[in-house]
Amino acid sequence: MKIIEEGQGELVGWYDPDEHRRWVAKNKSRELKDKRIDPKKAVGKYIKDGDFIASGGFGHIRVSMALIYEIVRQGIKELTMAGKTAVHDSDILIGAGCVNRVEVAYTFGHELRGLSPASRRAVESGECEVVAEISNAAYQWRFLAGAMGVPFIPSRVLLGTDTFKHSSAKKVEDPYSKRPVCIVPSCNPDVAMIHVHRCDKYGNAQIDGIAVEDIQLARAARRLIITTEEIIDDEIIREKPWRTAIPFYHVDAVVEVPYGSHPCEMPYLYFFDEEHIAEWLRSSKTPEGTEKYFEKYIFGVKDHDEYIELVGGSDNIQKLHEIENYERPMSAPWLRGD
């Protein structure tokens, strides 16, 4: 295959397919075993300084926030993160100094709510490095290739742009059409964290609503920690096996964390906690405010249950549940112009 042009971005998370097969054969258990573990132990066991991590969901939707907070609590450092529309998760981790390298499809923004003060400060001062640029479609195709066990996937995005020049993709001559095509390299992150609606103790997981790219990411990641709103009996999984988005053999740890996505949305269960997201955006305008936020909401609580109590407990969750299900109108500080 003739290489026409090569992106100059850093190639992160790529392994020779045979090397990856060997790693899987040696390290991934095929045993149907109870994988339940608490968030502290899951993070301690599977996430290490310098790892390349990816967080599931999309933006502020269905995010493993309980694990994100736990990474900050344990002070894990020098992580590289997949900025695959990584928004609140990456903002917290970059703001806390846990992540200092990102491959960016979409990061440093909170969509309609505005830009991220903490992570922008880090990237504009050089504390956090953008190691490569990519697009949303190309990123999830990197995971698809990683999940398929092939070294790359051809696509027709990125071509002709600076996004390509700063990516780890290559432009080659398609051996069939003879036209230029963009090949994106496979990606097998060291660890992925994915929050789901329910799973059994083995890790067989169901997701309600859009799966975004979690089908691909779950299968591409070397280690996969599932956080779940609830653990259900595996008989229920087996009644509707077509509902299993992620089968157990991809899963290394199962962590039960009700409201584990807060302040992000969990489709059909609870809406974004706009007041809390606004508090973060306000606090993170200064380094001192950022520190205070972490002191209060992360270091000041021992676990996610205590955090949920601190942010309003069951009354607040009930309110967010009603907004999610159109029983109560949404309101947001950014909507009121605050």
Partner: peptide, 14 residues
Amino acid sequence: RPKARLPGSGGAND
């Protein structure tokens, strides 16, 4: 070393 870092492509390039 950007003067201002914006979110990036997201789905725009696609």
